[in-house]
């Protein structure tokens, strides 16, 4: 699953373990990705307000996205 989204961070975990890099996606009801946050720093993650804003922003175009 992590590989399918290409968000693997080899050696990023304790003891050089493979873990996911921090990443956030918003997917619309049509299964289409509408917002992506691939942070440049593991310290900086998407905040809840940003994700909610992304969901709110896709509201008007949602019918279009769902129809694809």
């Amino acid at each position: 699953m992590i590989r399918r989204y290409d968000v693997l961070h080899p050696g990023g975990g304790p003891g050089e373990a493979e873990i996911a890099r921090p990443a956030e996606f918003v997917i619309d009801p049509g299964g289409v990705v509408r917002w992506v946050n691939l942070t440049e720093s593991i310290l900086v993650r998407a905040r809840p307000e940003q994700v909610l804003a992304a969901v709110a922003a896709m509201g008007p175009a949602m019918a279009q996205g769902a129809g694809k």
């Binding site: 992590i2 989204y5 968000v7 990023g12 975990g13 873990i19 996911a20 890099r21 921090p22 990443a23 956030e24 996606f25 918003v26 997917i27 619309d28 009801p29 509408r34 593991i42 993650r45 998407a46 994700v51 969901v55 896709m58 949602m62």
Partner: peptide, 10 residues
């Protein structure tokens, strides 16, 4: 759902 939020965190 209105949206699916997918979070990869560690």
């Amino acid at each position: 759902p209105a949206a699916v939020v997918l979070v990869f965190y560690r």
